[in-house]
């Protein structure tokens, strides 16, 4: 019973955080609440027998994401200008999506049901064969790095591309600022040497 009640309690906390985040206009507070949200989510994932995912979520979701958001806030300012306003079309879209998803969950197996469809396909094979084929006790590591190593390679490609794009975008903005500073200096004093950086 506790296996169902613990996720329920954590989900209630998550729902409260999200509802509290909705009307906030101070973006710094939004980022702080988002960090709390990610951390509760990490706890919930551990409660659902996924400690690897929980640790990644705590490190990447609550850690790196928060740092990235704070770094961006430093450059764009942390106040949302427009006040709270209910958007009827967005509300309708969300409600319709919610109803469709609710309809979809009616087809899911019951919570924790060991006879659900996903438990009867390749998962038992991985659990059974990992000790002899891969030789590590953690099956998730075995699947991630060995059985599905190509997927992980694809994931690295995605991250590499995203990292490249971020560097290109931010370098573009740095170069612009340097050019602007140089133009300003030249306008001030034509004989001054251009500041190259």
């Amino acid at each position: 019973m506790i296996e169902v009640l613990l996720p329920f309690a954590l989900l209630i906390i998550l729902a409260i955080i999200v509802v509290g985040l909705l009307p906030l206009q101070n973006l710094l507070a939004v980022v702080a609440l988002l960090g709390a949200y990610s951390f509760i989510m990490a706890t919930l994932l551990v409660a659902l027998d996924a400690p690897d995912v929980g640790m990644t979520e705590a490190a990447v979701g609550a850690g790196i994401s928060t740092v990235l958001l704070l770094a961006a806030l430093k450059r764009v300012g942390s106040e949302e200008s427009r006040g709270r306003r209910l958007d009827p079309s967005a509300l309708l879209l969300s409600a319709v999506t919610g109803v469709i998803l609710l309809y979809g969950t009616s087809g899911l197996p019951e919570f924790g049901d060991p006879h659900g469809a996903i438990h009867n396909h390749v998962a038992p094979y991985y659990i059974e064969k990992t000790p002899e084929e891969i030789g590590v006790p953690n099956v998730i590591t075995a699947v991630l790095a060995s059985y599905r190593g190509f997927d992980t390679l694809g994931e690295t490609t995605v991250i590499f591309t995203a990292g490249l794009s971020v560097i290109m975008l931010l370098r573009l903005s740095v170069r612009r600022r340097v050019d602007a500073a140089r133009d300003g200096a030249q306008a001030d004093d034509a004989s001054a040497p251009p500041e190259d950086q």
């Binding site: 996924a50 690897d52 995912v53 990644t56 979520e57 990447v60 979701g61 790196i64 994401s65 990235l68 958001l69 770094a71 961006a72 996903i118 438990h119 390749v122 998962a123 991985y126 659990i127 099956v139 998730i140 699947v143 991630l144 599905r148 997927d151 992980t152 994931e155 995605v158 991250i159 995203a162 990292g163 794009s165 971020v166 975008l169 931010l170």
Partner: peptide, 24 residues
């Protein structure tokens, strides 16, 4: 079941890459 855990590990990391690109 280990399979969803593996999928979501990938999704978390790709998610933070998306966020970084969006912020840039």
């Amino acid at each position: 079941n280990p399979l969803p855990h593996v999928l979501i590990l990938t999704a978390i990391v790709v998610g933070v890459a998306t966020l970084a690109l969006g912020l840039a």
